[in-house]
Design a protein around this nucleic acid. Sequence first.
DNA 1: ACACAGATGCAACTTTGTTGCAAAATAATT
DNA 2: AATTATTTTGCAACAAAGTTGCATCTGTGT
Lengths: 140, 140
Amino acid sequence: MQEAVQNILKKNQLSITGSRVRILELFLEQQGALAHGDIERRTGEKFDRVTVYRTLQVFLNKGIIHSIPTSDNSVLYALCKDDCGEGHHHDNHVHFVCDKCGNTLCLEDVTVPAIRLPKGYKFSQIQVIVNGRCKDCNRD
Amino acid sequence: MQEAVQNILKKNQLSITGSRVRILELFLEQQGALAHGDIERRTGEKFDRVTVYRTLQVFLNKGIIHSIPTSDNSVLYALCKDDCGEGHHHDNHVHFVCDKCGNTLCLEDVTVPAIRLPKGYKFSQIQVIVNGRCKDCNRD
DNA sequence: ACACAGATGCAACTTTGTTGCAAAATAATT
DNA sequence: AATTATTTTGCAACAAAGTTGCATCTGTGT
Ligand SMILES: [Mn+2]
Ligand SMILES: [Mn+2]
Ligand SMILES: [Zn+2]
Ligand SMILES: [Zn+2]
């Protein structure tokens, strides 16, 4: 774990600092997506709010995490497992928001389908957000 | 227009008030989606910010408008053209955000495709947001 | 015209996000 | 290991976005 975290930071030419290590750990421990608020809480407010914002911004730029739009318009972030880099995101998967437990998951194996757009439209990116009941919340 | 506005309000058993009429007019004049801020500006700040929030909330509940999640996490609203009602939204279309002009459009004719979810997952709603260049911004 | 329910505006507040700058921590150099 | 240069951090102050309670006003049905 420590290992993995350090590798990610080095690969992206980022200095190894407390907040970066801790926040990356959170993402690695967790399979779901995290909101800014989650991160503040789980770090026990050890880091300034501004630092968390800036750290997330850096991770986003470097392609370490990607952001996920949700229907209730909260900003969520999740690790990029595909090989994203500086300015180059290609997370081509569907996002699932569980209405019961509230978890948001990257369904890495479910790729976004092709969309037939009207004449004249050109797409650059397609996001699919599925709401429903997740695997865990469905067995009862 | 006046006609249409009054009909929508009556059909939903809402009293006909200045803010409701004006805000509905804005939606009818406009083919794209509106953010809270847009509405404040276009009404010339004639109505209190709180009133705008509450009006949008009421329209949302009644199924007169629906909200649209965007990748930059601003809240957008657009008229429901399908027959949505109290608690029953079934806007089954794709949303398009133009990266150039910033407009967000309901592509009423483009329905969201079926998504094959992993075993155990059940969906209740699927949202598709497409980014790119709109028809107007593409001819040059 | 009147009474009542509901809508509005105001004030006060919370939450969320941004910016400039000095102090502290990290990385590079000697 | 010590010194320097470069980043990163925390603080303070601020701005924007959204919420709540309450008194007043407006629209609607009688
Ligand atoms: Mn994802
Ligand atoms: Mn729509
Ligand atoms: Zn769940
Ligand atoms: Zn456009």
